[in-house]
Design a protein around this nucleic acid. Structure first.
Length: 366
DNA sequence: AGTACATGTTCAT
DNA sequence: TGAACCTGTACTT
């Protein structure tokens, strides 16, 4: 799945593309017909991410009060396979797709940075081209509306596959497929979901970067305390969204490696300073993930030129942009079972922890 | 064509 | 601990 950085990118994409617009909301697949009817014709007020949870606020179009009673919140969790794909009228610059790593619906590490740092705007595919030619620059491109007037006569492409929700705005459509959760909540119900989550390194980092007051919800001390409260292995604690929100299987393995921490160390035995360092590293890595759309954890000196040999999975859509870190050089341990550790040369191990494959180096991580 | 796989979570046992 | 769930892609026959 998309880890937290992906969901934060999505929140920005949806806000940048649709905020303030009255949307047509449908469920081409039909499984969300009831929910779509609750949102159809409303104005998208904004979208936000907490860990891997995406919330999209809708308010009445007729100048409702925006009182909590008037707000309906679309809550989406992408699960393992969920993704959004976008298509537009050519007047907007927008992400193509964000979600599970696939060819068509793939997030890649070869992308321009997100809005605000984009050098060359890339127009959306108009949706009237063949899939191959419509793919354009691969992957996940920042978005920014560059023209106010919608292109006349533009018709969005027919939904491809099982589209649970389609949001249609002035310039573009966003299609959601395969979410594990897609529901309409009241604001207080949405708040209850957030309150079950641990602190989110991306939200904390965003506040720090903006120089604004961070939400106490995202205070790293909550993370440190939660890990140390339990004898459960630290490698399992990091996957618990009530301990830290937004970390997934890649960030878990990689951040433990970078800290040289043995994933099987009981949480209660990990020094506070080490957990502080893990948090700081998560903030840095995940903010970078939001900026670039890719997870890259290797230091330049640890990347083997030309990549590694051996049969391990590499991501789709990779290596297309000059200067991008190749997908097979991005990680220290993730998906590198049996390959030599980039630092000590001993084979990378896999073991199942918290129901997922956890990769590590027994020599480097103690 | 069938099958394995995927950056996830929840519920049952 | 295991199964179920959401779907598309890439690989194998």
């Amino acid at each position: 799945m998309p880890e937290g950085h992906t969901v934060h990118r999505l929140a920005r994409a949806l806000t940048d593309l649709f905020a303030g617009q009255r949307l047509t909301v449908t469920s081409p697949q039909g499984r969300f017909a009831g929910g779509a009817a609750l949102l159809d014709g409303r104005v998208l007020a904004g979208a936000s991410a907490w860990g891997k949870q995406l919330f999209v606020d809708f308010v009445p179009a007729d100048g409702g009060t925006r009182a909590p009673d008037d707000v309906r919140v679309l809550r989406v969790h992408l699960g393992l396979y969920g993704a959004w794909t976008f298509a537009g009228d050519g007047s907007a610059v927008v992400v193509q797709a964000i979600g599970a790593p696939r060819r068509r619906i793939g997030e890649t590490e070869t992308l321009p940075p997100v809005a605000g740092a984009l050098d060359e705007p890339v127009p959306l595919p108009r949706g009237d081209e063949s899939p191959a030619s419509a793919s354009g620059p691969e992957g996940d491109v920042a978005l920014e509306v560059v023209a106010d007037a919608p292109v006349p006569d533009w018709q969005p492409p027919a939904p491809r596959g099982a589209v649970r929700v389609r949001l249609r705005g002035v310039h573009a459509v966003a299609d959601l497929t395969a979410p594990t959760t897609c529901e309409v909540l009241t604001p207080s119900e949405a708040r209850a979901v957030v309150e079950r989550l641990g602190p989110d390194p991306i939200r904390w980092g965003d506040a720090a970067r903006a120089g604004t007051e961070p939400d106490p919800h995202d205070d790293p001390q909550r993370f440190v305390d939660a890990v140390r409260r339990s004898r459960t292995p630290v490698g399992a604690r990091l996957m618990d969204q009530s301990v830290v929100a937004g970390v997934g299987n890649i960030y878990r393995a990689e951040v433990l490696y970078r800290a040289r921490l043995d994933p099987f160390r009981p949480g209660s035995s990990v020094p506070v300073e080490d957990l502080r360092a893990v948090w700081d590293d998560l903030v840095e890595l995940m903010l970078d993930g939001v900026r670039t759309g890719a997870i890259v954890t290797t230091l330049p000196e640890d990347r083997v030129p030309g990549g590694t040999t051996g049969r391990h999975r590499v991501r789709q859509n990779s290596d297309a942009v000059p200067g991008a870190v190749p997908s097979d050089a991005s990680f220290y341990v993730y998906h590198r079972e049996g390959l030599p550790c980039r630092v000590c040369g001993n084979p990378v191990l896999v073991r199942e922890v918290a129901g997922r494959n956890l990769y590590s180096c027994a020599t480097c991580q103690r």
